[in-house]
Design a protein around this nucleic acid. Structure first.
Length: 442
RNA sequence: GGCGCAUUCGUCUAGUGGUUAGGACACGGCCCUCUCAAGGCCGGUGCACGGGUUCGAUCCCCGUAUGCGCUGCCA
């Protein structure tokens, strides 16, 4: 559709995918997909001391999880490779030679520096507008180093060379690079290359407005991958940080975002990451989940704290999980919500105990226990009818029966529908657990 | 320090030279209800400050403050 549009995500392999990097990748991907262009993944592994293999894998995993497929790059190939900077030495040498021949470099203690033309450089940025940088003063804008004495390359140089060689049409990156852009433009000009279009997107900050750094909670995509989030929710939330459909919609499917995404709708203000809102949005998606995908994600979430559902019959597991549909926001809430289905050794919530296991309620719990024990058909509707009949007999509302029963059987004051949960648990376990609660209290 | 960018409810955002400044998250109250969640209704909080320009500025200009970024032989 538009083969001239070529964008890239160029992370350095640090061992994890930063949430800000994930959004940069997302914006590049959205732009490419919207225009029918090409999304390229390039690994900026100029620092050879890092474990590139493993560290790069974290980036692939993160991008795949988010559903951001790349058209050129590692595992994918392409006509502009290699896609690792560590394998592009010859290319950099060639361009350095051009610069040397043109007299644009000089040596400084063994390092190679680029001699700035000392002019004003205007950056035309799609997001930030037109910005004039005064680079005439060498005191404030020293000539940049492009190669170290040991032969390794400096980011600014190889980044520009790669963008030229890979025919990148639009550089979409974090605003932290805005001040570096005029230097990059000097390099493009020195190499007689047309600079790409630039779009600097705002940064993601912590909730308190400080810069989100490596150590901050939530800075790594793994927090969300392992924390029970849905990729479509994280994509959606990330897209809303700095971009907006300009109407009141918040929940937008990825293909809808692709359809609407425009760089000139990106705002210039740094955004704080609001975990609560991300969790809320996740709940919006989680609520719609059913069937196989739901069961799979739920079982994975239960497995994390050590609840092994494989020891139970499939039908039991599914029926149990189905009572949890639409009842939680992130999957990590699930073990606490429905763990009682899979373990007998749960403890009773102390606050709920104080409120429900009262001297007044214990005879009532005994009464409902006996009524349940006498039941033939142990299904939700029979259980409900029995409970209500028992309440009527005792001259009380359903509440004083419901709450102590729930606590006795699940250990919690919250959970799935009581009658359904009792049915799934089965008569034997229900009676056993109520008896145990009765014994524990008295 | 120098340079750059930013500034609308606590947070994410919409918006306009004249609006009751809109939505969402979060928060509080009520309703519904077997709990929770969801849903429904109601509620409060915002245009950083000071000068201009203008009949009129949240919106345009200048300054101040604050925040963030860059200023590396990090990326």
């Amino acid at each position: 559709m538009n083969p001239g549009i070529r964008v890239r995500f160029a992370p350095s392999p640090t061992g994890y995918l930063h949430i800000g990097g994930a959004r940069t990748a997302l914006f590049n991907w959205l732009f490419a997909r919207h225009h029918g262009g090409t999304f390229i993944l390039r690994v900026e592994d100029t620092d050879k001391s890092r474990n590139t293999e493993e560290a790069a894998a974290a980036i692939y995993d993160g991008l795949r999880w988010l559903g951001l497929d790349w058209d050129e790059g590692p595992h994918r190939g392409g006509d502009f490779g290699p896609y690792f900077q560590s394998e592009r030495d010859e290319i950099y040498e060639r361009h350095l030679q051009k610069l040397k021949d043109a007299g644009r470099t000089f040596e400084d203690n063994g390092a190679v520096r680029f001699r700035s033309p000392r002019e004003h450089v205007v950056v035309e940025d799609i997001v930030c507008g037109s910005i004039d940088f005064d680079l005439t003063n060498p005191e404030t804008h020293p000539d940049m180093t492009i190669r170290r004495p040991d032969g390794s390359w400096i980011f600014h140089f190889v980044n520009v060379i790669d963008d030229i060689e890979m025919k990148i049409s639009h550089v979409i990156r974090g605003e932290d690079h805005l001040s570096n852009t005029p230097k990059h433009i000097e390099l493009y000009r020195a190499l007689a290359a047309e600079p790409p279009q630039f779009a600097h997107i705002p940064l993601i900050l912590n909730k308190d407005g400080s810069k989100m750094s490596k150590r901050d909670v939530g800075a790594s995509l793994n927090t969300y991958m392992d924390g029970g989030f849905l990729p479509e929710a994280v994509d959606n939330y990330l897209a809303l940080l700095g971009w907006s459909p300009k109407d009141d919609r918040e929940k937008l499917a990825l293909d809808e975002i692709v359809r609407l995404f425009e760089l000139d709708k990106v705002n210039r203000k740094n955004a704080s990451f609001d975990l609560e809102k991300c969790i809320w949005l996740n709940g919006e998606y989680a609520r719609d989940l059913r069937g196989d995908r739901f069961h799979k994600l739920a079982e994975e979430a239960l497995a994390r704290p050590g609840i092994d559902t494989s020891k139970f019959p499939q039908t039991y597991v599914r029926a149990a999980l189905d009572t949890c549909v639409a009842k939680f926001r992130i999957f990590s809430e699930l073990p606490a919500y429905c763990g009682f289905y899979f373990r007998d050794d749960f403890s009773y919530n102390p606050e709920a105990v104080a409120k429900q296991f009262t001297p007044e309620n214990m005879p009532r719990l005994q009464a409902i226990r006996d009524a349940f024990a006498a039941l033939e058909a142990f299904d939700a509707s029979a259980l409900e009818a029995t409970l209500k009949a028992t309440a009527a007999q005792l001259g009380i509302k359903a509440g004083p029966l419901v709450h102590p029963t729930r606590l006795a059987v699940t250990g919690s004051s919250t959970g799935p529908s009581l009658y359904h949960l009792l049915e799934i648990l089965g008569k034997e376990k229900v009676i056993m657990r109520i008896d145990r609660a009765l014994a524990t209290i008295s």
